[in-house]
Design a protein around this nucleic acid. Structure first.
Lengths: 192, 192, 192, 192
DNA sequence: CATGAATGAGGATTCATTCAT
DNA sequence: TATGAATGAATCCTCATTCAT
């Protein structure tokens, strides 16, 4: 009981750093983000960061993980819905809900992937895994809809999202995402 | 005749730099690319770069322009085709032809856009212009096909390309682009 | 006791840098002085300088402040003297005492002012403030002597000092300062 | 006659460079002025400068010479006046006439001297010579007035000018020069 | 564990000077 | 002579990473 104060005060500095990193890296990009930026955002002294993460790359990895866990949460929520069509459309709906963020900074996973793909760290494989998870989940839904081309459809859906995120961001226009979202929902319905 | 080699080398140092920049920036990303990298790729002494471009940003801008001119060339070639369907499918075919490059480095315009959108330079507006050109051209084709939803379709098409470029790059799998290319061609045919 | 050396060395790294900057900038001039020069003079690694001062200009500003504080100290000491005449003559006496330094590098404030006036930073306003302080103090003394033209006299006195500093420096002849000092003291006495 | 065209077109590129250098160096200071600045001001291609001056320092020297010749011209004009008092007061009057320039950039000779004294080139001796000329001339005038302390007075006069130039420049206030000019004229009259 | 401070390896940029024509 | 272009040595500044306490 005595330590509860301390425990409650810093409920995982490590986690706070990872969360802050996820946000700041999304907003500023990996290369333009300083360790100091992240430390500041997490309200952690710069020197202390290294107690939790040996290198900047490890912090980036933690940020990727955070995005991954976020995705897991989203998927878990979607799985409560009764039909695959509804699940897929709910996914699209979620994207549309985030359109303001996309207009400003693009898709968190997508922009991270684009940037990390320029490197030969394992980091690019890390982000690929997350993308894979989403892809697999979408594939399952299309399969549940009885489509034999489920993989292809899953790729098309995720690609459509990544692409419209990029355009939405490039033109700073959230409406692009909204319009494309409607189109994708109609498309899902048309697949029976 | 003997001096032609040397004589021919100078004429386009500025252009050589822009071309090299376009390539290297695509391959390595803007932030990770050093002026020295570009200078080396263009076989120009670092100090000399500044004779042609006052800042790194100006060199990036020149690289963007190079990509823009490349796009213009492509579009001009496409316009020789008789029907809008053929033109659009030829565009898609071109993307598929470039799938190996996309698998390695992603779409030149798209990755550049993703990275530059993190900045508040005019550079992000510059790349948006190029994307706009492509979008406008695609819209014209859909319009020529008699579609009233030409804008929406154009956005969907370009988004699909940008998205599949990202996935192709993320998974280092050119086949993704090929498959999606076929799907897009079928889709175009279905719109008549 | 053994570690006192090291312990004592840290306490004022920032101040050590400012002091070193004040000296080196006086000796070499602002433009000719490298950050490395100052770092070396303060026995601080170059990279570390930026922990204390974000830019070279901020370091220059700190040096100006150092000169300003030095002036305050001098003025405070002068104010202990009973009559304005004595105070003014003591000021002049101080100048004469520093004539060797003036012969080598000129008046610290004056040379700095001359150089910074070529710039449009706020730095030139910073040095003007210090000059103003000296001017105001001199004016008060002449006022205390009952002179209605106190401002004009103050300007004349400071100008005489700045001018003779320049000549002393130009001709590398400390005697110029000494002679002019005597003249100024006689002049002060003549004003009653 | 045939060469008159050419002769008239470029009446001494060398001289044009020296004049431009004198002006630009006064305005911007030696260190902050690039060769390109001077070349541009003289409307001479950069590469061509080196045909006339082997190094930047030689150009600075030429600028100093230009100021020296300017001084000679002024002195020559003053010498037309009948009495030493009138000559000295005319000198002071000239300073006052130039007060706007002094407020902006200080005294050409003085600021140059201040900057060059920081160097160990012969350049600082060069500027000292010019200052010497002025000093000698003033000394002669005081001598002609029958003063045995002519040297000391000459030094005081020139120092007063250099000092008030600095203050005028520091405070950007031409009036300072005007006021001090009046004071100096009264002072000259009082010496008889 | 915490933290302010230290360090040094780059990276962009400037500019005097040189060169080829 | 004239001139655009070339060159490389400096210089300022950033930042990941380490260290001492």
């Amino acid at each position: 009981m005595t330590d509860s104060t301390k425990v409650r005060q810093k409920p995982g500095k490590r986690e706070r750093l990872a969360t802050a990193a996820a946000r700041v890296l999304h907003e500023q990009g990996v290369e333009k983000t300083t360790l100091a930026d992240i430390a500041r955002a997490a309200d952690v002294p710069v020197g202390n960061v290294y107690y939790y993460f040996k290198t900047k790359d490890q912090l980036v990895e933690a940020a990727i993980d955070a995005h991954g866990q976020n995705l897991q949460t989203i998927i878990a929520a979607l799985d409560d819905l009764p039909t695959p069509q509804e699940r897929l459309k709910a996914l699209v709906g979620g994207w549309v809900d985030q359109r303001e963020l996309a207009a400003r900074y693009g898709c968190p996973t997508g922009t991270l992937a684009a940037e990390l793909d320029k490197r030969e760290d394992g980091l690019d494989r890390q982000i690929a895994k997350i993308m894979q998870v989403l892809l697999d989940w979408a594939e399952q839904q299309f399969q549940a809809m009885g489509r034999s081309d489920s993989r292809e459809l899953a790729v098309a859906l995720i690609a459509a999202y990544q692409g419209i995120s990029l355009l939405t961001n490039t033109f700073r226009d959230p409406e692009l995402m909204a319009t494309e979202g409607c189109r994708l929902e109609r498309w899902i319905d048309s697949l029976t």
